[in-house]
């Protein structure tokens, strides 16, 4: 049990636990924000598992999640466009959690960069970090900007 795994455990308990709670209660919009947060935190835990277990191969798992995770959230946001307008009961909390999940990426990515072998692996870790920040920010922004009034007229969605 080293520092990396301890940090991973912390992220699991303090991050993914509340994210799961957020996905279970509330209207669709806050659930989707919770799913977005869960994706970012899961990718960070996968990233921490690599130096934690001393296996560079686990970075590929984090890379795939960093690429597919925001895509999944955008798919939800696209196909649930009619369900989103019913707003969040705690809009501040939801948005704060969203930006916190973006803010926690650099403090995890930078130490991992130094822990892995220099060269291509460092670039891979940086790419994962950049994808997570960009993807999470885009999803959070898209969800925040989704129409807040119910779509009663116009096109079918």
């Amino acid at each position: 049990m080293n520092g990396w795994l301890a940090a991973a455990c912390l992220l699991l308990v303090l991050g993914l636990g509340p994210a799961l709670c957020g996905a279970v209660v509330g209207p669709v919009r806050s659930r989707l924000l919770a799913q977005n947060v869960a994706t970012v935190l899961a990718a960070l835990v996968l990233l921490l598992a690599s130096p934690g277990y001393d296996r560079p191969a686990y970075l590929d798992t984090a890379l795939v999640l960093a690429v597919l995770g925001p895509a999944g959230t955008l798919v939800y946001e696209r196909l649930l466009a009619e369900d989103l307008p019913r707003g969040t009961p705690w809009p501040g909390l939801a948005r704060g959690a969203s930006w916190a999940s973006v803010a926690v990426v650099p403090p995890v990515v930078v130490p991992v960069c130094f822990a892995v072998a220099p060269g291509r692996t460092t670039v891979k870790v940086l790419v994962i970090g950049a994808l997570l920040v960009a993807g999470s920010a885009v999803c959070g922004r898209a969800l925040a900007k989704a129409p807040r009034t119910a779509a009663g007229e116009g096109s079918g969605g």
Partner: peptide, 15 residues
């Protein structure tokens, strides 16, 4: 949505 989080939890567990 909950299944999505379940999928993430399972992927973490497997890793």
């Amino acid at each position: 949505l909950v299944l999505s989080v379940l999928g993430l939890a399972l992927a973490l567990l497997f890793t």
